[in-house]
Design a protein around this nucleic acid. Structure first.
Lengths: 157, 157
DNA sequence: GTAGAAGCTCAAGTGAACTTGAAGTCAAGG
DNA sequence: CCTTGACTTCAAGTTCACTTGAGCTTCTAC
């Protein structure tokens, strides 16, 4: 293991638990980079695993790939990121996570007083007003990231 | 206001904060029903507002429309739902919400010890293992429902 | 040197939850 | 009667984060 510090895509996929197709997609989206020695196949430095771990975690927190890319873009160019760099990036999530937890707790407590009681009034209900405010967004899916969904029912195929 | 207990789609849309197109879509998906007097335009009983409030809230909790439809299908056919009925439906969410809150807290605490510290190790990290396990799902988007996302950035159009 | 695994690109498909557009119909006011 | 606005259907488009498939190339092991 010498120049063997460079991993092929299959190995990265296996180690990171991310499909090779997803890795190519991430590269296309500017989230990760690879080198292409003669032959044209992708080789990844081991550091990509840490980067992918960051992507994964950020997704769990609800960030989009675009947001994640922007966050990664603030990492220093020349040197490899330090603990302090990663800590800085993840610091933002903490508040985001706190916000989400607060929102869910409000939802839960709203349930007991508002839906749990059976009122379900549209005007009075903080739960509903929350929803109304978040209503005006474009088309497209809006649901929970994998980490938050219940049984991640395996696909049959 | 006599037979005026029946609301046109525009009014329902306005009151519920849900686009008319979404209401038609919900009807197509079996989530709500409407009557069609002569002329063929939809008229909704006022009770649809409560039903829509349920849909909204359930979405915030992360249920899919399919799950919501199934939940609504367990409501009694003849009479209008009582407090007890709604309470029963929303009882399931409580545990779901509790689960989600626990998951987010684990994520947050994992951040301080795992990513916050800069390790970001793929093998050791509970955060990552969580992600790995939830990985094997089909294509399609996975992100937070509107209620949990940060600034619901208005569309420009 | 060759079989077979692994990799490549590119276009197109997937899923959820809608929205948008076209082309026409209905209802209320003047 | 006529206009205006709200409503109708239906097909197609949108978003995000990918996956799948076809058709070809490269790498590894025997």
């Amino acid at each position: 293991m010498d120049a063997g510090d460079l991993l092929p895509i299959g190995e990265v996929a296996r180690r990171a638990g991310i499909a090779a197709s997803a890795l190519r997609y991430y590269e296309e989206e500017g989230l990760v980079a690879s080198v292409r020695p003669a032959g044209g196949q992708r080789r990844y430095p081991r550091s990509v695993l840490r980067r992918l771990a960051f992507v994964r975690a950020a997704q769990s927190v609800g960030l989009t790939l675009e947001e994640i890319r922007d966050a990664l873009a603030t990492l220093p160019e020349g040197r490899s990121p330090t603990k302090a760099d990663w800590a800085r990036l993840s610091r933002g999530w903490r508040s985001r996570l706190d916000e989400q937890i607060v929102a869910l707790e409000a939802l839960r407590d709203g349930l007991t007083t508002c839906i749990g009681c059976g009122c379900l009034s549209l005007r009075d209900c903080t739960l509903m007003n929350r929803g109304d405010r978040a209503a005006a967004r474009g088309p497209g899916a809006r649901y929970l990231p994998a980490a938050l969904r219940r049984a991640p029912r395996q696909r049959v195929g």
